[in-house]
């Protein structure tokens, strides 16, 4: 177990906190908040995977050798993917909040256990 880094484990604890909220909470807004916490944790984990100790940001400055830069910079691919993921997460939240507002207008509550129209 001594091989497991603390930062990875803490990111996964954050994910587990979000998972607990999604499974055990009744309030629709609380469920959305828990999903956002899970998304945060996954983005952070991808960035941690691409980190290089004592590295530099993947932005070249003037007069820098390409080979020296390539041996020092952190992973640019993980950062590009995380930017995409963050922006998509925002649009998904807008959609989820729109559905939650609609449900509130209809049932006058955010309580998911009171929304029984489709219950079999």
């Amino acid at each position: 177990m001594n091989n497991m880094p603390l930062a990875y484990g803490l990111a996964m604890i954050l994910f587990a906190v979000g998972l607990y909220g999604v499974v055990c909470k009744k309030n629709a807004v609380k469920i959305i908040i828990s999903l956002l916490i899970m998304e945060n944790a996954v983005n952070l984990f991808i960035l941690l995977i691409g980190y290089r100790k004592d590295g530099i940001a993947p932005v070249m400055v003037k007069g820098q050798e390409a080979s020296e830069f390539a041996s020092m910079a952190v992973d640019p691919l993980a950062q590009a993917i995380v930017i995409t993921s963050i922006v998509i997460g925002l649009s998904i939240v807008a959609l989820m909040i729109a559905i939650a507002i609609r449900l509130y207008d209809r049932y006058k509550t955010f309580d998911t256990s009171k929304m029984k129209d489709l219950k079999g």
Binding site: M1, N3, M4, P5, L6, A7, Y8, G9, M12, I13, F15, A16, L19, L48, I49, G50, Y51, R52, K53, G55, V74, D75
Partner: peptide, 18 residues
């Protein structure tokens, strides 16, 4: 979930070795 994750994280390389 956490047990499965811990099992997977052991096989990852050390943090900071990109």
């Amino acid at each position: 979930f956490f047990l499965g994750i811990a099992w997977g994280l052991i096989s990852l390389p050390v943090f900071g070795s990109f």
